[in-house]
């Protein structure tokens, strides 16, 4: 029950170490590739944090879907549900959000925005329901089913923007803009930062509270830590908890799609997500599945994306270097976390 200390002593140290390790490795790679690591780092830092606009309009805006999908992964993984389908659940949410946003133009914003976001959450949860039922009824492993459901959702979205939901002129493979009343208000005037970021913060705080204070949160942690002990010692209905984790995770990922549509793009198109549902796994693991930690790691990955664009623009370094850097972060986390665990089990393995 002493989360701060646990996070400080372990996961936070791992995260910091991973970032430092990645910075060193990245510098060596850039140098080997004939680029000036310092110039590239400067460009990336300025592009991510250097100006008000860089921080608010680029880095934070990109962090919002990462926070929500990162929380989606944290909910699932905490309960031992290996949902790797956040990407598909995000698209399901985006499709539902766009549909409500296009059809509901007559409603006042006070009703329409909640309807859009609610539809996104429900759609994401429903998208996760299929793998959940397959796991609980038939014993099919969710890693495969959730992953495959991603492709179904991505192509469903593609079909929608080429077919039923295509913009009225039928020229571009995208939907028309959603109603004004369906859009999330801008939070800081003069920037693109929308109120979705508040929603993400509230979701993180809510989840943190859920895990610490509520019965279902405790049950999820118990099932994730040891399904057998949860069932035998805790008399917990593990199937019910697993189902709730699936649905909650899917709803959060769906919400990420809805927030992106209602807050940033106002429309649906192919490639809406650059793989947030997958990056979210790294975001959540780097945060040791701690919801508050997800806020920090999501911003880190948001900044990496923002910095990558700036690096390409201002230092002539191809953006693929940033993708490589992201991968390095993940590898470093895995390696350092392993080291930490080994030290831990040595200490208690009498």
């Amino acid at each position: 029950m002493r989360w701060p200390e646990r996070v400080m002593g372990g996961p936070l140290a791992v995260a910091t170490g991973a970032v430092l390790l990645t910075a060193m490795l990245g510098a060596v790679l850039l140098w080997a590739g004939g680029y000036d690591p310092l110039a590239a780092a400067r460009a990336a830092a300025l592009g991510a944090f250097g100006t008000r606009d860089a921080l608010l309009s680029i880095t934070l805006v990109r962090s919002v879907p990462l926070i929500l999908t990162g929380l989606a992964i944290a909910v699932a993984f905490r309960a031992g549900v290996w949902n790797v389908g956040a990407e598909g659940q995000l698209y399901a949410g985006a499709v539902a959000a766009v549909w409500v946003g296009l059809e509901g133009g007559s409603l006042p914003a006070l009703l329409l925005v909640p309807a859009v976001l609610g539809a996104a959450g429900v759609a994401g949860a429903l998208w996760a329901l299929a793998p959940a039922l397959m796991k609980l009824r038939l014993g099919v492993g969710e890693v495969i089913t959730t992953l495959l459901m991603n492709f179904v959702a991505i192509y469903l979205a593609a079909y929608m923007v080429h077919g039923p939901l295509q913009e009225p002129r039928g020229v571009f493979p995208q939907t028309g803009p959603i109603a004004e009343g369906a859009r999330l208000p801008v939070l800081v005037p003069g920037t693109r930062l929308h109120v979705g970021v508040v929603l993400a913060l509230v979701a993180a705080a809510g989840l943190s509270w859920l895990f610490r204070r509520t019965r279902i949160g405790f049950q999820m942690r118990a099932v994730g830590a040891s399904s057998d002990a949860a069932r035998i010692a805790g008399r917990i209905d593990t199937r019910k908890v697993v189902l709730i984790a699936f649905l909650g995770s899917g709803a959060l990922a769906g919400l990420a799609g809805g927030v992106q549509v209602a807050g940033v793009t106002y429309a649906l198109y192919e490639g809406l997500s650059p793989g947030w549902g997958y990056t979210a796994i790294a975001v959540a693991l780097l945060a040791a599945l701690n919801p508050i930690g997800v806020l920090a790691t999501a911003v880190l990955f948001g900044a990496l994306e923002a910095g990558a664009a700036a690096m390409q623009r201002d230092a002539g370094v191809p953006a693929v270097w940033a993708v490589a850097a992201q991968s390095l972060v993940i590898l470093a986390v895995l390696a350092l976390d392993r080291v930490r665990h080994r030290a831990g089990s040595e200490a208690s393995g009498v």
């Binding site: 830590a225 949860a230 069932r231």
Partner: peptide, 20 residues
């Protein structure tokens, strides 16, 4: 495997039986 959860502290392990 079934009596307690190694990564839970004493309080949380006691809570396994009491939380309901």
């Amino acid at each position: 495997l079934e009596g307690l959860i190694g990564e839970f502290d004493l309080t949380e392990n006691v809570a396994l039986a009491l939380h309901a």
